[in-house]
């Protein structure tokens, strides 16, 4: 059977291997998904006028800031994991990738704590449109984090066996997973500014 070309090698005229182009397209689609949600936020807020509450009335800015730093750090360690593979240092990759996953889990725990505090104070999505869009946006973002944790854990654990046979392809996989992870991080920065600070 003829092999599918450019799974690992870069095609000259596009400058990309297949998976890298695929993830960029996927991220373009993700931009449209979050773009739709943020547009909804804008429309609802404009419609509500002065009734729209300040983010800080419901949300704890300190916790949100802490979580922002957690996620940004995980983005850096994700980059370090990829760089380690580029420098053929598998041990460092294991460490950095492990830290990335741990930080993501820390982020989710903090998020879960925030959610539980909301419920404890009887703040539910059905209370008003601010809480509705808050829970929807952060919920969808959290699902993206969970998806990233699953993929990163696979690449850290069983998936890393590929390093022995096809190191270049495995490095590419980490790069692609990293691009996704940076995107999810970026979404959070927008989300944090819009929901907590504005």
């Amino acid at each position: 059977m003829q092999e599918i070309p450019y799974t690992v090698a870069v095609r000259q005229d596009t400058g990309l291997y297949n998976a890298k182009m695929g993830i960029w397209l996927f991220l373009a689609s993700e931009v449209m998904l979050f773009g739709g949600l943020f547009s909804a936020y804008v429309l609802l807020r404009v419609g509500a006028g002065e009734h729209w509450p300040l983010g800080a009335t419901y949300l704890n800015v300190a916790i949100g800031t802490f979580n922002t730093f957690v996620l940004m750090s995980s983005s850096i360690t994700m980059l370090m994991a990829w760089a380690s593979l580029k420098m053929k240092n598998f041990g460092h990759f294991k460490m950095y990738q492990g830290i990335t996953i741990a930080l993501a889990l820390l982020f989710l725990s903090v998020k879960g704590y925030e959610y539980s505090m909301k419920f404890k104070h009887h703040h539910f999505p059905s209370d008003n449109t601010f809480l509705a869009i808050y829970f929807t946006l952060t919920g969808i973002h959290a699902l993206h984090i969970i998806g990233g944790v699953v993929v990163n854990s696979y690449l850290w654990g069983p998936g890393s066996k590929m390093w022995q046979a096809e190191p270049e392809r495995f490095t590419n996989r980490i790069e692609v997973a990293g691009l996704y992870w940076h995107f999810v991080d970026l979404v959070w920065i927008f989300l944090f500014s819009v929901m907590y600070l504005l």
Binding site: S29, M32, G36, P125, T129
Partner: peptide, 23 residues
């Protein structure tokens, strides 16, 4: 590029129907 906004809208309608929100 056109389908994801409908996905966003579907999620919001699901929230309206299941979580009692008022999007």
């Amino acid at each position: 590029l056109a389908f994801p906004p409908l996905e966003a809208a579907s999620v919001m309608q699901l929230m309206d129907r299941l979580a009692g929100t008022s999007f």
